[in-house]
Computed example of a mutant assay.
Amino acid sequence: MSLYSMWGALEIGLIFGLVALSVLLSFRILRFPDLTVDGSFPLGAAVAAVLIQADWDPFLATLMAVLAGALAGALTAWLNIRLKIMDLLASILVMIALYSINLRIMGAPNIPLIMEPTVFSVLQPEQGISDYVFRSLLMILIVVIVKCALDAYLATRSGLAMRATGSNPRMARAQGVATGGMVILGLAIANALCALGGALFAQSQGGADISMGIGTIVIGLAAVIVGESILSSRKLFFMTLAVIVGAVLYRFFVALALNADFIGLKAQDLNLITAVLVTFALVIPLLRKRLRTRGGN
């Protein structure tokens, strides 16, 4: 694998690290099976791309994309909490609706951003560093800031109430926690992170596409599972770190598999690679348990 491919895998892995944090918040912390991310990821890309093409500042366009993702997540939670629609079904309904909404926003199946200013092009220095290296370094900074902000929030009183809502909602309600509000806020934050990833992905790859959200939830879950298999801990700092590491490793494995000529894999085999990686990550804890059992005997 070339150096360019490695930097590219790091950049995309860090972008999907934001998606992994989103999945961690919804699936692990809130215990809410949220499939909205398959729609909020391209929603962030669509909003950012349309606004950038309309000569908006790319930072402001990215912020609007984040707000759009937060609204999508809040809508899913509202359907579940207020209308009593089953959590999984509520997220599926919003995900399906977002496909049409994204097409409405974009006005076409895809929007190119190759000649438009982006967060990456605006911040990049004119000399001294390659484009692909700078994008990866900027993504490291963004992901670190988001991770630290999420860690700090989840350590606050509101964050602890959200974690209690996911762990034991009945006990949380008994302690005076408004669990419905916590779910709405949690899913809003989760999908805002996913939309941020979509907005940055569109700006990194030079355009937004209506199909770019397909399989986002699978990638996010793969990152969470891979990360937890490698770095297993109940401490919040290591939990968030693990999913980011898992997302980066996932992209490295994919890039390595696609660039290994002797394996013969192609771009259309991406879903196959994902399935194999997730299966392997799920088997690792079982293998560890068996080895410990044998060692104890």
Rank of each mutant, 00 (worst) to 15 (best):
M1R: 07
Y4Q: 14
W7I: 12
A9T: 04
E11K: 05
L14H: 00
L18N: 04
V19S: 04
A20W: 00
I29T: 11
L35C: 05
L35R: 02
L35E: 05
T36D: 10
V37N: 04
D38W: 02
S40A: 14
G44M: 03
A46D: 03
A46Q: 02
A46V: 05
A48P: 08
F59C: 11
T62A: 10
A68V: 00
L71A: 14
G73K: 00
A74M: 13
L75N: 02
L75D: 04
T76G: 09
L88P: 07
L88N: 09
A90I: 02
L93G: 12
I101H: 04
I101W: 03
N102C: 07
N102R: 03
N102A: 06
N102G: 08
R104W: 13
I105P: 01
A108N: 12
A108S: 14
P109K: 08
I111R: 10
P117V: 04
V122S: 08
Q124W: 02
P125I: 06
S130E: 13
V133S: 09
S136E: 09
L137G: 01
M139T: 15
K147V: 13
Y153V: 08
M162N: 04
M162C: 11
R163P: 00
G166E: 09
R170Y: 07
A172S: 06
R173K: 11
G176F: 08
T179F: 06
G181P: 01
I184V: 15
L185I: 11
A190D: 05
C194S: 14
C194E: 06
A195Y: 05
A199Q: 04
F201T: 14
A202T: 01
S204Q: 13
G207W: 13
I210H: 10
G213E: 02
G213L: 02
I214N: 13
G215C: 10
I219W: 09
A223P: 05
I225S: 01
E228T: 07
S232T: 15
R234C: 08
K235T: 15
L241H: 07
V243F: 03
V248K: 04
Y250N: 14
Y250W: 13
A257C: 12
L258A: 11
N259P: 02
D261H: 11
G264Q: 09
L265M: 13
K266P: 07
N271Q: 08
I273L: 08
I273A: 06
V283T: 14
L286S: 15
L291P: 08
R292V: 15
R292A: 15
T293I: 09
